[in-house]
Simulated scan of single mutants.
Amino acid sequence: MRLLTALLGLTALPSALAAFPNVPFKTSKQWFVDSTGANFTYVGVNWPGAGDVMIPEGLQYASIESIVGKIKSLKMNVVRLTFAIEMIDDIKDNGGDVTIKAAFTKALGTKGDTVYQQVFDAVAAELSKQQIYVHLDNHMSKGAWCCGTNDGNAWFGDKYFNTEKWKRGLQYMAEYSKKWSSMVSIGLRNEYRKPDTAGSSLAYNWQVWYDQNVAAANLVNAANPNIIIFFSGLDFDTKLTPIPGAEDLGGGKKFEKSSFKYADKIALELHNYQTSATDCNSVKSGLWNNGFKALDAAAKNQMPVVLTEFGFSQADTTYNSVYASCLRKIIPEWKAGWTVWVIAGSYYIRSGTQDYEEVWGLLNHNWSGWRSTNAVNALKTMVDASFK
């Protein structure tokens, strides 16, 4: 299997790459800063690894080296690598790390004897080899397609969202990923959202958000003080409205950057999928008011903000839409970071469908080339603008 070939073929990094990766990173005002003092902008792509199989997608079609090489060819410098808490639960509660044979049999019936973490290790090693940074993201608790308000992963205490196991999983991955040389940051949770039912044991509000995220961040920082911690917002991570201004979150609690002992290790992330937008100014003002104003020197909590998800179909001309054109313009203008959704041209399994076609994927179904050269060329202009 190509995956095993990729794993067995890993070699030591050449001496020419000795200067990379200039870690650890920290934050200073609106910037990420590497260990040399240079400002760094996140410019990258999402690589899903939190689906039913719970390993990075695409390895039934292409080698890790090939996939990373395609990302590198776009001059991107970071991959948002998603994972599910269920993977850590299997390690901690179910007799140890699960083999790919078990995972793939569940999805596709493919055989293999490598375990989950060896795959993540191999991806991280190849990203470092090609001088690309790793940003881990806890996407889901239960490995599955994300996201819905009825999927049991929406909010603390939801059907599959065991809050203590979530904290344990974050702590575990922060500690485990220390050995990845280009590991720089971790997102605490992807897309908080209000559950459809009353299944959650905790109220859906900013006060609960604060209590749970700060507790988790403290554990992550204790496990690995070198990495930056990303806080995501409510309503599918489209709103961080009270955070830039340190507004009252309820119960007299405020998110104040200065109160963190690791204040230079925190950042914000937002998502945006306004694909039907007809006015760029509306998109711009919405993003700014919902959280990007934290970039401004006047913000009480000035800190970096990264658009960790945005995207659209690669199978049509949406790349020319108001939405896509607007984001290509305003995010680089703000000197903000971004990771586009998604590199995946297909999924092992999604919502019960095997070998699911992902038309939003930058790559084609068999991960051999770009789905749309025109869309990718447009994306390259955003890459170039982000480095100016």
Rank of each mutant, 00 (worst) to 15 (best):
A125G: 06
V115H: 11
L108V: 07
A107R: 07
A122W: 00
A124T: 02
Y116N: 13
A125Q: 09
G109D: 03
D121G: 05
G109V: 03
G112F: 05
A103K: 15
M140T: 15
S141G: 09
V119Y: 03
A122K: 00
A122H: 04
G112R: 10
F120S: 06
K142P: 01
K111Y: 15
T110Q: 14
L136I: 00
V123F: 02
D113N: 14
S141W: 11
L108Y: 06
H135W: 14
V134R: 07
S141R: 10
H135I: 15
L127N: 05
L127A: 04
V123E: 00
G109M: 05
V119W: 05
D121A: 01
V134S: 08
A125E: 07
N138G: 09
A125P: 07
G109Q: 01
A103T: 08
H139T: 00
T105L: 08
A103G: 08
D113S: 15
G112P: 10
E126W: 05
F120D: 03
Y116A: 15
I132Q: 03
L127R: 00
Y133W: 00
L127K: 06
T114G: 10
A122R: 02
K142L: 11
Q117E: 11
Q118S: 11
A103L: 15
A124N: 04
V119K: 03
A125T: 04
H139A: 02
V115Y: 13
K106H: 15
Y116E: 13
D137W: 08
A122I: 01
I132T: 03
T105G: 12
F104K: 11
Y116L: 11
Y133P: 00
K106V: 09
G112C: 11
Y133A: 02
K106Q: 15
Q117G: 13
K111F: 15
A125R: 07
M140Y: 10
V119Q: 02
A125Y: 09
Q130L: 10
K106I: 08
V123K: 06
S128M: 09
Q117W: 12
K106G: 09
S128R: 13
A124E: 02
F120V: 01
G109I: 01
Q130R: 12
A103H: 12
L127H: 06
H135G: 08
G112A: 09
S141C: 14
D113C: 08
I132R: 05
Q117Y: 12
F104L: 14
L127E: 05
K129W: 14
F120A: 05
Q118E: 15
E126A: 01
K106D: 13
L127C: 04
V115C: 06
Q131P: 02
S141H: 13
